[in-house]
């Protein structure tokens, strides 16, 4: 099932981390800068997304589901025990 080589598996954690971090940052920026103007909703999280839900609700659900999906990917494809670095610098 795990077709990655050990080096690719070691890169998986930082790759997934930055994917999620950038998504989270985009969500926060959208809430702060693109949703309100003079206190009134103008776009960003206030925009309709699908099924009658706003982008704010959809993005919130997506960030929660997305965290689990990335975690599962890492659990299935991440480094094996003998490949995990100690990172202790000892």
């Amino acid at each position: 099932m795990n077709q990655f080589n050990p080096r690719q598996r070691l890169w998986l954690a930082p790759t997934l981390f930055w994917i999620y971090t950038l998504s989270y940052a985009a969500f926060v920026v959208a809430a702060a800068f693109f949703t309100f103007e003079n206190g009134d909703p103008v776009g960003g999280l206030a925009q309709p997304a699908f099924a009658g839900l706003s982008f704010g609700v959809v993005a919130g659900f997506a960030l929660i589901f997305g965290a689990f999906v990335l975690a599962m990917i890492y659990a299935l494809l991440g480094p094996r025990e003998q490949e995990t670095p100690s990172r202790s610098n000892r």
């Binding site: 954690a13 997934l16 981390f17 989270y24 960030l63 929660i64 965290a67 990335l70 975690a71 890492y74």
Partner: peptide, 9 residues
């Protein structure tokens, strides 16, 4: 919930 991504990765 997002904080767990830092914990995991």
């Amino acid at each position: 919930l997002a904080g767990w991504i830092v914990a995991l990765f």
